[in-house]
Design a protein around this nucleic acid. Structure first.
Length: 871
DNA sequence: CTCCGGACTTGCAAATACTTTG
DNA sequence: CAAAGTATTTGCAAGTCCGGAG
């Protein structure tokens, strides 16, 4: 039976419940120790503001249990559930969201290079990204020069003051306000049960080892395991003279319109915060600062008690940081990686100067890779062809009949490939299903790893197949052959006691076996295109290990909220610093804060030429008097960033100075690089780096927009509010997507539909007029007679049609607005899921409407956040 | 310091799965 | 039911940041 099951795709069900989206996972041993690490490693992200439940619980996960688990896995690829602690929660699978429909007219675009398209978009279309960023500032002319999140931030201040303080808070020394403000992460603990992790964990672990398949019911409170979190609060202290006046002014100004909804929430939040403060934990003092002026103190944070029940069942709680020095796991069992099948020759010949040419399988394989890319934009790029030719020529050998690429005709292979594709498409669903099952069966054993006794999904267990390198933008290496990876290229990382995965290719062996528990990768090989880089095999996003660090990331970003006022004050002051390095740091930090730019590491010549903040070139920034800066550069993935913003005058002048006497291609911030910048940031807040600003900006924007924008409408309306906020974040972060090939056609079609409805409308009106006069309706266009309706019915129909038309037009507009905006990236990487979950709870929006299955699994650690949680 | 190996997150697009529509 | 769309998943490239060696 077991065997049978494992062969069967259905078998997967066994796993299914286990890795269902909302699950309970065990706590990692390493997590328990973090206290220690926090104390030791002040800079570690996790170490700060992390919930920690350390005290007493140092129970070590017993190796015994783990080894047992591993054994079972090793001995039988049995899919048998190894994890017991995961609690499945029923989730409605359908995560549907909103859709837009439409079409429009701009087809030619897809033939252009991506960058070109973007350019077109941004130039012609005000709705598109770059410009939009600008839009975000429009609503607040008064503070156009204010950092992106400043406006939001002030709101949070406002919120804070609703609770216990009056507006004057804002004027209080920042440190005071901050001190009074509770640290957020505690909110999420509200729901937790008293039982602490510490106490529980060991038990759970052992359970997992011995009891194998028990699943806890979500609904069973007793069964659910809660974790407590303790977050620490940071209380930055600032030197009085350091307090930038400008900043405080900016912050004050804002209080303009506190949103009602937020004030209500605020109260809840505050009280939650209060209650939370009680158990505490560690106090840490970090001394920071330049000039020895500022010192930040951390305060203990507390656990929260769980409040009223939420509609969501509780799920996993992650432990605080992954401290323990460096230790990421105690036991690790997995089956290695799976290789792509060997090349199957097809024997289709290419033509050289019109004549068929014989190729060896190796030569044919590479020729096929090329042939198959005929319809891509790479074929228009000389660099791609050149690189391909250079690598392929090597395979062809010295005196091969083929002497140049130009005379090669790959059409036969291309056609063969197309027909193969067609064949596949024509297969019956049955056949397809069978094929899929077969594949599943082969891969199933590689899909899972057992980490500290808990079964976790592996992210990418498939070794990358050979192919032609598809670098983005103008990558110097595009088209190069990415050779096949063999076991001899692969380094495996696995627990000491775990069986070493059998090498799947006969007669070969792994390059190396390691037992390094300070890292999370299960395997890696070096990138054949750039041997300096590695390709890693990690656990999936839904794993506890990933969830852990995800949470730490958001906690760090939240911590920034407490420091941001001081940081702004500090850099504002330095806008005019005589020390040019400091001045550049100040301006760069300002840009990162205001525009959510990436840090901008240096790049090699053999990479696409893109920039981030520190690597901006003089030519990327154009001044527009009196105080605007126009940015235009290619950022990550060669995505164009185009944005014109108003900046504070000192910034404008500083840029002027940095540009002076430099050539267009020179570095704008010539005294700066990311390590200097980050080193500086770290002095301002422990663990602070440039990327934290992006997370911070994104999440606080979401939090703010949700709370301001939600008016208590129905679910549908609320979802629109969410999407709007999501879109705003995507715009801030410049998350773009290429316009789909069929976009214009879709818009066109929608227009036709609307026109059709309009025609109907007209006809209805005519009928109405006639009906009022007692005449029967005219015949419809197809000549048939229509039913004779009374005026009332006709009026109703008219208004219905009108509504339909309006809705369609709205949808169309939305669709067009979003055609170049990618919402997914921010959802996955930048928006603290607790904001979303808490908001959903508050407004009774089913979380499945916002998060799909993967997201639910990835964010399982955030599911039981307190409804009052605010970023 | 700087350089660079190393590890991990972020990001877009292609492939695939699933839904709606005609 | 196929075509048309949309949503989700997968693939893998491209960033960030850290820390150790020189």
């Amino acid at each position: 039976m077991a065997l049978k099951a494992s062969d069967n795709p259905n078998l997967a069900h066994d796993f299914d419940d286990e890795d269902g989206p909302l699950t309970f996972k065990r706590y990692t041993s390493s997590k328990k120790k973090q206290l220690h690490s926090q104390l030791t490693k002040s800079t570690s992200p996790s170490s700060n503001g992390q919930p920690s439940s350390n005290h007493k619980g140092n129970t070590v996960p017993s190796a015994v249990g783990n080894s047992k688990a591993s054994t079972s896995l090793a001995n039988s690829n049995s899919p048998k559930p190894v994890l017991d602690q995961k609690i499945p929660i029923h989730i409605k699978g359908e995560t549907k969201s909103i859709k837009h429909s439409t079409k429009d007219s701009e087809d030619e675009d897809h033939n252009k290079p991506f960058s070109a398209r973007l350019k077109v978009n941004s130039n012609n279309d005000n709705k598109s990204t770059p410009v939009v960023v600008k839009k975000s500032y429009e609503d607040s002319n008064d503070d156009g020069a204010m950092p992106l999140s400043a406006k939001l931030f002030r709101n949070s201040n406002a919120r804070a003051s609703c609770g216990n303080y009056d507006d004057s808070d804002v004027k209080k020394p920042i440190s005071k306000v901050q001190k009074e403000r509770q640290n957020g992460s505690s909110a999420s603990n509200k729901h937790e049960k008293p039982s602490t992790l510490l106490a529980k964990r060991p038990i759970d672990n052992s359970n997992s080892m011995h009891t194998s398949v028990k699943k806890l019911k979500v609904s069973d409170p007793a069964g659910s395991i809660k974790t407590e979190q303790v977050s620490m609060k940071c209380e930055p202290k600032v030197d009085d003279d350091d307090d930038g006046i400008p900043i405080s002014q900016r912050i004050k100004k804002p209080l303009t319109s506190p949103d009602k909804s937020s004030s209500v929430n605020r109260k809840l939040t505050m009280s939650a915060d209060k209650s939370s403060s009680m158990k505490n934990s560690l106090t840490k003092v970090t001394k920071v600062n330049k000039a020895g002026k500022t010192s930040f103190k951390k305060q203990p944070q507390k656990l929260k008690k769980s409040g009223k029940g939420s509609d969501y069942s509780k799920s996993t709680k992650l432990l605080p940081s992954s401290g323990d020095g460096q230790k990421k796991w105690t036991t690790l069992v997995h089956n290695g990686v799976i290789f792509p099948p060997p090349y199957q020759t097809h024997g289709v010949k290419i033509l050289y100067k019109g004549k068929p040419v014989d190729l060896t399988p190796e030569q044919e394989e590479v020729a096929t890779m090329y042939a198959v890319m005929r319809d891509t934009e790479y074929m228009q790029k000389d660099k791609f062809k050149e690189n391909f030719w250079n690598d392929w020529r090597k395979l062809l050998g010295r005196n091969h009949v083929i002497h140049n690429l130009k005379d090669c005709d790959f059409t036969p292979i291309y056609d063969w490939y197309q027909s193969e594709k067609e064949k596949k498409k024509q297969m019956t669903t049955e056949e397809k299903k069978a094929l899929k099952e077969e594949k599943m069966k082969q891969e199933e054993k590689y899909m899972w790893a057992i980490v500290d006794g808990v079964k976790e999904k592996v992210g990418n267990f498939r070794v990358e197949p050979p192919g032609l390198f598809r670098g983005r933008g103008e990558h110097p290496k595009m088209g190069k052959l990415k050779r096949r990876i063999c076991p001899g290229d692969i380094v495996i990382n696995i627990g000491k006691d775990a069986p070493i995965p059998e090498c799947p290719i006969l007669g070969e062996r792994w390059k190396e076996i390691r037992h390094d528990n300070t890292v999370t990768w299960l395997a890696y090989w070096s990138d054949p295109i750039n041997p300096k880089l590695f390709k890693y095999v990690f656990l999936a996003a839904s794993s506890s290990l990933k969830g852990q660090s995800d949470k730490e990331k958001y906690e760090k970003a939240r911590m920034l909220k407490d420091y941001i006022a001081n940081i702004r004050a500090a850099y504002t002051k330095d806008f005019t610093n005589k020390d040019i390095t400091k001045q550049q740091i100040a301006v760069a930090t300002y840009l990162i804060d205001k525009l959510a730019l990436r840090a901008g590491n240096e790049k090699d010549d053999d990479e696409a030429d893109t920039v981030g903040c520190c690597t901006l070139k003089v030519e990327n920034v154009t001044r527009e008097a009196p105080n605007k800066l126009k940015f235009n550069f290619l950022g990550k993935d060669s995505i164009k960033y185009e944005n014109t913003v108003e900046v504070e005058l000192p910034v404008y002048n500083a840029i002027l100075k940095f540009q002076k006497e430099k050539r267009p291609g020179d570095d704008l911030f010539d005294m700066l690089d990311t390590s200097k910048l980050n080193a500086h940031l770290k002095e301002l807040m422990p663990g602070l780096t440039a990327k934290v600003f992006r997370t911070f900006n994104a999440s606080i924007t979401l939090d703010d927009m949700l709370n301001k924008g939600t008016k208590g409408g129905d679910v549908g309306e609320n979802i629109v509010v969410y999407q709007k906020a999501n879109k705003q974040v995507a715009i801030i972060c410049n998350h773009q997507r290429s316009v789909s090939k069929s976009h214009s056609a879709q818009m066109l079609r929608l227009n036709e539909k609307i026109d059709g409805l309009k025609a109907v409308l007209k006809e209805l009106k005519t009928d109405l007029d006639r009906a009022k006069k007692g005449k029967s309706p005219l015949k419809s266009s197809d000549g048939k007679a229509k039913r004779n309706l009374n005026p009332k019915a006709l009026e109703k129909k008219i208004s219905q049609t009108n509504a339909k038309i309006e809705k369609m037009q709205r949808d169309m507009k939305t669709k067009d607005d979003l055609k170049t905006v990618a919402l997914g990236t921010s959802k996955i990487n930048y928006l603290d899921p607790r904001i979303t979950v808490a908001w959903c709870k508050r407004h009774e929006v089913p979380i499945e409407k916002i998060f799909n299955k993967s997201l639910l699994a990835k964010f399982s650690w955030a599911m039981d956040v307190d409804p009052d949680f605010r970023f």
